[in-house]
Write a protein that binds this DNA or RNA. Structure first.
Length: 857
RNA sequence: GCCCCCAUAGCCCAAUCGGUAGAGGCAAGCGACUUAAAAUCGCUACAGUCAGGGUUCGAACCCCUGUGGGGGUACCA
């Protein structure tokens, strides 16, 4: 290869991004520099992971951003001397492939793998430093075999089970929908209003881990975005209170209700059961024929009601009186029982005690049906430890209200939910809310009619899908033996060929029609049996993929425990906030389950998380229909990978959205060209003595070497790019109007530019490195140590303030003493002038930066 | 309704611990080079930090209230 560093290029030489890509890509593909975990490698390890892409169409700008950031982190750690595992794969099962197949009458496999080919080619040009030897596809039998293994492990532990339940149902597509496929109460595909249907489905028992999933979030504080932590906490939604048993007249078994306010038990004036719960039906069955009929009508209305109706929280409350009664376990009071849809069948026990005075929903219901309302907490009474907020007037005096608000929820229509003192509550009278909660639970426990309890918003994870393109559930249904797990030796249960199968939705999994496949023999008794024809939610595939990368080519285990010890958990996870709840929660759950099963020794899969923002265009999410789509391929062709990556990194903090209309890829190209040109202008030899170089330029170089690690680790990529621009500008100046191109500091600056630029713009950096006289690859160059001597300036500017206002500046030594600095400040002419006629009260000195003289007139 | 985040030049964004409001870019203007243009190089201008209050010697930064924007969630007892 021609060495260009000693022959200055003509001025007209142009930076050509495309040429650099074509030059270096084949060389890199030969070198495999990013293979991680080579035998004998003793470097410390880092695992940097991007959320793997779903292969639909080509890569888009969102991919460009996320994978750009992930690669910046990966390359950075490599420069810092780590053996970095940075793998990539494909989340290649899923509905879009199936939809495309139905539309064209083709095989989802073909569509998927064709897209993967295209995305892979784009990726290679974009040049993230992936270890391609670990590439995986969740739709490969060699992958989903281990997803099936995972299912069976959970099954053995009782964490995978089948139950009948209400599921989202699209009446047009005749299929079950995942929660995330229901958008505003409509099917995301056809727009039909989604209804509920009762079906027997497979679930993972996530709720068993609810406490740990919630509590362990504290470990991630500071390492995950606060927003994601908040979303997970809300989603899990733990609430504490009590289970209270109510005897039902004419029924043997008491009914248990959950409440967070057992203190208000004496204020309960009726009971409500969920209209779609079995209990409601049972109570109606035991009532008069008239009630039974009214209830049946109401129940049918409710089940036909769409999610759209349910979404309207302000719609009037409805319900049916069942003409049955419950007995309050503390007061002995007789409470009428109603059925209503504002009580949810699958939360708590599907029944509540209604305290209309202190719960807004109960109050709304009571007002709608003219039910009694009894206040049992005096929210005007002062409570120790609770500071009442009294408004202040302009002079700072307290403004006491003319009259205390009346305790009248019926009149105001507003329930009293605040702090207060108990009243009308027998043994609880006079207690504060908190103490009354405690006391009421004691009373319930003494009388064996209740106990402290907690409940979660989180529900078990429904994993069955009536789809073809997913991981088959490895269970055989036998008339004799029931559910029988497929023996490990028979895995994988491979998907049958799609040809000849009707993939269009008809309410059953298409696999059920593949008679050669579905009909089998029972592994236990050998009699004819049927395979489970559902496939798993693709979130199961992605819940453990980070472990498969560690043993991607091992066909004996899902992942090697020793490899997991070495690499996992993931040090840096990068991906979109759209997965803030589902994927991350599922992955956390699976990790905890695998920990309990003894396969891993950690409980959290991703120790730190970066959520990149979205790439917008003209303030809006990009879409073809809006006509504001920025095509990744087109941008890549026009500007090249480096300029694209620099543009995205430079646009702002990575977690914030980027409006493509606000940024300038041509600006990025200009910067890259300047940096690259300088590398060609350097005339000093590679073995030049750094110390001989221009100190001013060296200071800038070394400050960047010192600051960049902290900036990268704080995800301030935009600042690092800005600082690189500053360095390049300074180098340019040194060449043109300073010590000139032959100065050692110019070479040093250019080498450091190339080394750091590699984390954003690998092609340009690699070519600079060559122009500077070195062989590839700049990606493997160790981070150069900043010289501490160069980090200290000869002089610093000290600011002299009087009463906080800047009055003078002094050039002082960075080691100036507080006494000297104060004396210099007092000696300043500008200071003396301002100080005339004022008494000095205090002097605050923060050497060497600041003196503040505080005065009094 | 509840929860979370954000607000700094025309625009995108910086500002380690509370200590000089400006690092960088875009757009703009001027100049050098050029027969000219592009490219390149150089120079210039532009805000007092959304509003109001508080704490402090000192606030873009901490606290309170409000406004505007974005996101999450939705009858969870």
């Amino acid at each position: 290869m021609e060495n260009t560093s000693d022959t200055p290029r003509p001025e007209s030489e142009a930076y050509d991004a495309t040429a650099l890509q074509e030059k270096w890509l084949p060389i890199w593909q030969e070198r495999h520099d990013f293979t991680a975990g080579r035998a004998g490698d003793t470097r410390p390890r880092k695992y940097v992971l991007d959320m793997f892409p779903y292969p639909s169409g080509d890569l888009h700008m969102g991919h460009a951003e996320a994978f750009g950031f992930g690669d910046t982190v990966a390359r950075y750690w490599r420069h810092q001397g780590f053996d970095v595992l940075h793998p990539v794969g494909w989340d290649s099962f899923g509905l879009p492939a199936e939809n495309a197949a139905i539309k064209r009458g083709s095989d989802p496999r073909e569509w998927t793998y064709a897209n993967i080919d295209q995305q892979k080619r784009s990726f290679q040009r974009y040049a993230p430093s992936f270890d391609w030897s670990r590439e995986l596809h969740t739709s490969d039998p060699e992958y989903y075999r281990w997803t099936q293994w995972l299912f069976l492990e959970l099954y053995k532990k009782g964490l995978a089970y089948r139950k009948a339940g209400q599921v989202n149902w699209c009446p047009l597509d005749q299929t079950v929908l995942a929660n995330e496929q229901v958008v505003n109460g409509s099917c995301e595909r056809c727009g039909t209003t989604v209804t509920k249907k009762s079906l027997t489905q497979w679930y993972f028992r996530v709720t068993e881990y609810a406490d740990r999933l919630l509590d362990d979030l504290n470990q991630l504080e500071g390492a995950w975005p606060t927003k994601v932590l908040a979303m997970q906490r809300n989603w899990i939604g733990r609430s504490t209170g009590a289970d209270v048993e109510f005897v039902i007249e004419g029924r043997l078994e008491p009914v248990t209700v959950f409440t967070t306010r057992p203190d208000t038990l004496y204020g309960a004036t009726f009971m409500v059961v969920a209209a779609d719960a079995a209990l409601a039906q049972e109570l109606a069955d035991g009532s008069s024929a008239e009630v039974w009929e009214r209830f049946a009508r109401y129940r049918d209305e409710v089940s036909a009601a769409s999610d759209i109706d349910r979404l309207a929280t302000d719609r009037p409350k409805t319900g049916v009186f069942l003409e049955r009664y419950a007995v309050n376990p503390l007061s002995g009071e007789r409470l009428p029982i109603w059925a209503s849809d504002y009580v949810l069948a699958d939360y708590g026990h599907g029944a509540i005690m209604a305290v209309p005075a202190h719960d807004q929903r109960d109050l709304d219901f009571a007002l709608a049906y003219d039910l009694p309302v009894r206040v049992v907490v005096d929210t005007n009474a002062p409570v120790t430890g609770v500071i009442p907020i009294i408004p202040l007037d302009e002079t700072g005096d307290a403004v006491w209200p003319d009259e205390v608000p009346a305790l009248d929820p019926v009149g105001t229509g507003v329930a009293l939910t605040g702090e207060g003192r108990l009243m009308n509550s027998g043994p609880l009278d006079g207690l504060s809310k908190l103490n009354a909660i405690r006391r009421s639970i004691e009373l319930l426990e003494q009388r064996r009619v209740g106990r402290a309890a907690k409940n979660f918003r989180l529900r078990d994870w429904l994993i069955s899908r009536q789809r073809y393109w997913g991981t088959p559930i490895p269970i055989v249904h036998c008339v004799e033996c029931g559910e029988v797990p497929v023996p490990a030796a028979d895995l994988p249960v491979k998907l049958p060929d799609a040809t000849g199968l009707d993939l269009s939705p008809q309410g059953d999994s298409p696999l059920g029609a593949a008679s050669d496949w579905v009909n089998t023999t029972c592994p236990t008794c050998g009699k004819p049996a049927r395979r489970d024809s559902d496939t798993m939610d693709t979130f199961v595939d992605s819940s453990w993929y980070y472990l498969r990368y560690l043993s991607a080519t091992d066909d004996t285990v899902a992942f090697d425990i020793k490899e997991a010890e070495k690499w996992a958990p993931v040090n840096q996870y990068v991906g979109g906030v759209e997965h803030a709840i589902l994927h991350l929660l599922y992955s956390r759950f699976i990790t905890k389950a695998l920990c309990d099963l003894g396969y891993v020794s950690f409980t959290e899969p991703f120790t730190s998380l970066l959520n990149q923002g979205m790439v917008l265009m003209d303030g809006a999410k990009m879409s073809k229909s809006k006509g504001n789509l920025v095509e990744f391929a087109a941008e890549l062709n026009t500007h090249g990978a480096d300029a694209l990556r620099v543009t995205l990194a430079f646009a702002g903090p990575p977690e914030e959205d980027i409006d493509w209309a606000d940024v300038s890829p041509t600006g990025a190209t200009k910067f890259l060209a300047r940096a690259w040109r300088i590398a060609g202008e350097v005339t000093s030899p590679t073995e030049v003595e750094w110390k001989s170089g221009d100190v001013r330029l060296r200071r800038i170089t070394h400050r960047l070497l010192a600051d960049a690690p902290g900036l990268v680790e704080a995800y301030k990529f935009n600042v690092v790019v800005a600082r690189l621009m500053e360095l390049v500008n300074a180098t340019r100046k040194a060449i043109d109007s300073g010590p000139g191109a032959a100065d050692a500091a110019v070479r040093e600056a250019s080498e450091v530019t190339a080394m750091i630029l590699d984390i954003f713009a690998p092609y340009t950096a690699e070519d600079m490195w060559e122009r500077l006289g070195y062989p590839p690859s700049v990606a493997l160059v160790p981070w150069r140590k900043a010289d501490p001597v160069l980090l200290v300036d000869e002089t610093v500017t000290a600011v002299v303030q009087i009463d906080g206002k800047m009055r003078d500046r002094l050039e002082v030594s960075p080691t100036v003493s507080a006494e000297n600095l104060e004396a210099m400040a007092r000696a300043s002419e500008a200071v003396a002038r301002t100080l005339a006629g004022r008494d000095i009260v205090r002097v605050i000195v923060r050497a060497p930066r600041l003196v503040n003289i505080v005065t009094r007139e």
